[in-house]
Structure formats: structure tokens, C-alpha cells
Simulated scan of single mutants.
Amino acid sequence: MKNRYNYFARLILLLAIAVCLLQDLCAQNFPSSAEILERIQALQVKKDSFYSPGMFTSYRRYARKSNTYKADDNIFFTAISLFTLKQLRNDVEEPEKILIDSIYSKGINSFYKYRNQKEQPIYNFWQTDTPVIFPNSGWLNWFDKSNSMPDDTDDTVMILMALQANDSTAKQVHELMRQHANLKNKRVKNTFKNYRDIPAYSTWFGKKMPVDFDVCVLANVLYFVQLNQLTWQKEDSASVDLIRQVIVDKKYMTDPAYISPHYSRSAVIIYHFARLLGKYQMPALDSLKPILINSARELFRSTDLLMDKVILNTSLLRLGAAAEIINSNGNITFDDIESRKFAFFIGDMATYLPNTFRGMMASTGIGKFYFYSPAYNNVLLLEYLTELRKRGY
């Protein structure tokens, strides 16, 4: 009888602890999903002489000037925001669906200015109708036309997924990406030696650009291939193989800027891996989820950035693990969410140099820029809260 009593007492205690943990996880004092969507809608450009209507504003900070932010009209943050909102639509309540539809319908109208000028269905980071590099950069803009960036796979696949491109367009872009993959015309130089003979996709479409490996870009490309049910090619397998080797070697933790020059941070890299693996089965990568889960927990406990904690928790949930508790003193405000300390994307000119010079230039911070978008921070938070709700929290 006594043993039975002790058993039930322990069971009740464990249930009480579980309930408290769930309450703590849910009661993290975030704005509601409706409030977040209303904020995103308020941040969407209505009329502006610099940004196109429907875009989300974004800003760029030079690494060597910690407090100076300049407006940057790249399409990247608008593309990834609309893509994410479109993915979340079926998991929110009806009033929130209406808000997403309104935001989406206004946002997609800005994409055409960034499309390839030869009418190929590929896109650029900056406008292509009037080429500009690093907008609002003063003397750098003298070189806009001669040094404009080529179209890239990352912006292209995110925009096409946001637009829900048709089958023929997806197949055409898939073939264009294959034509610019490593070893097709050039060999990648700015990565580790044991990765250089992997025929994975490059970041760039332009033939004048060196081949560039970025594992976050590869994760987005593979998401695009799977979403559109494209015929699997050797470049797809190679891209999976490169990601696998990066995870096994733990380079995403020890050398994040080297294997992901355009995202550069371990938390953001794990977020990209988890987004892919949370949506699609990848036999070569699925067995590595425990490694990513352990790394996500390690980073969560070592960071003070709210938005890092948010994307790491989203990653944990997508990898099939429990989320960590985000502690806060009082309500979390939009000022907290939209902190400029969180950079999701990084531009670094040192990326395009061979290994011999890349490390030297990267260490100086010359040519390195941090990109930030307040609206996208809110999209990431909405994504996290939606993932929690899907799992019954």
C-alpha cells in the first residue's frame, strides 16, 4: 500500500512539474500572433521614394562602423518574409490568414524590379532595372553599372517559392543552377580542400563570378527542389553530401563564416538545416539530427540575443526536440524583437578572394556588412509561436 502511495505521489509530482514547464514555455510574454501580423503589416512599405510599395524595409551596417545603419532596398528580406508567411498560412486562425493574404498580395508586386534583364526567371539581390550596389554608399555607387552583382540562386529560389512558380519555370531554373555548379566550368577555391571536388551548387549564376559554396543557400536550393518535386540530379546529391560533411565535421560550429559566407553564424546555419529537415526526409542527413539538436541547445544556453533563442527554439522543434524556455523580465516588446543586434544575413567581400587572402581580409572587417530587417524579425517570431502551437504548447 505504501509503495503504491509513493508511486502515485511521484507521478503527481512529475505531472505538476510538466504542467509548470509547459506553462513557462507558453507564457513567455510575447505579443499574440495577431498582434505580430498587424505589426508586420504596419512595417510594409505603403509609399516611399526609395523602397517599392509592398516591400519590407531593411538596413545595412558596415562592420567597422558599429552605429551607422543605411537603408538598403534589397529584395532578400521581402522574399524570405513572404515565403515564410505563405508556409505558415495553413497553420494560423482565419483572421490571421486574411492578414497574411493582404500582406502577401501587396508584397509580390515588388519582385519584378529584381528579375533578370534578359527575361530569364532568375533574380538579383538588388534592382536590375537600374543596377545599384550597396545603395546609399556614396562613392561606391560610382561603380554601380560596371560592378553590379550577378543574379543568385538564393534570392531566386526564395522568390520563386514565394510566388509558387509553375513546373516549367522551376525546371528551367533547376537546369540553370546545374549549369553553374562547381566543376561545371570552374572549381571552387574559397573553401576547405576536401570540399573542393564536390559538384554542389554555386551561389551565383554569373560566369564572371567565382564558384561560391554556402551551406544555407544549398539548404534553400534543396528545399526548392523538393517543394517542386523536381527530378533529382547529381548536383542535388552533391549538395546533400556537402551539407553532411559540414555537419559531421562540425564546421558549422567551428568555421561558420567559412562554410556559410552569406549567413556566417552557427545559429542561422542550424535554422536553415532544421527548416529543410523539418519539412523533408533526407536519409543522408536525418541520422545527424541529434548532432544539430545538441549544438542548438549549446548555442541557446550561451547566447543573450532574443532572436537567436527564437530561431534556435524553432530549429529544435523542427528537429523533433523540445524547445528551451526563453526567460524574460516582463513583457517582450516589439523594440526587443526588432533589435538591430540580430543580423540574419551578412555580406562580405572577402568571400570572393582565394583562401590565401580571404582570411587576412576577413579579419579586418573591411568589406563586411550586416543586414537587418525589423519586419523579418517579427516573421521569425510568428514562425516560432506557430511551431509551438502546432505541437500543442
Results as ranks from 00 to 15, higher is better:
222 L>F: 04
117 Q>E: 12
84 T>E: 07
371 F>W: 15
191 T>E: 09
80 I>Y: 09
91 D>I: 02
143 F>A: 10
21 L>I: 09
326 I>N: 01
226 Q>S: 09
114 Y>D: 08
151 D>V: 08
304 D>E: 12
167 D>I: 08
156 T>K: 02
157 V>T: 10
242 L>C: 02
384 Y>C: 04
116 N>C: 09
226 Q>N: 10
145 K>S: 02
183 L>V: 06
171 K>M: 11
202 S>Y: 02
279 K>P: 00
149 M>S: 09
75 I>E: 08
254 T>C: 01
59 Y>F: 15
366 I>D: 11
224 F>D: 03
50 F>A: 04
31 P>M: 03
91 D>P: 01
24 D>K: 09
86 K>Q: 13
218 L>M: 13
286 D>E: 13
386 T>V: 06
371 F>Y: 15
55 M>W: 13
55 M>E: 15
142 W>A: 10
340 R>C: 05
114 Y>C: 04
203 T>W: 14
115 R>A: 13
348 D>K: 07
181 A>G: 04
269 I>N: 07
157 V>C: 04
108 I>T: 15
114 Y>E: 06
179 Q>L: 15
257 A>D: 13
377 N>D: 08
278 G>D: 00
257 A>H: 13
49 S>M: 05
330 G>A: 04
336 D>C: 04
353 L>F: 10
137 S>R: 08
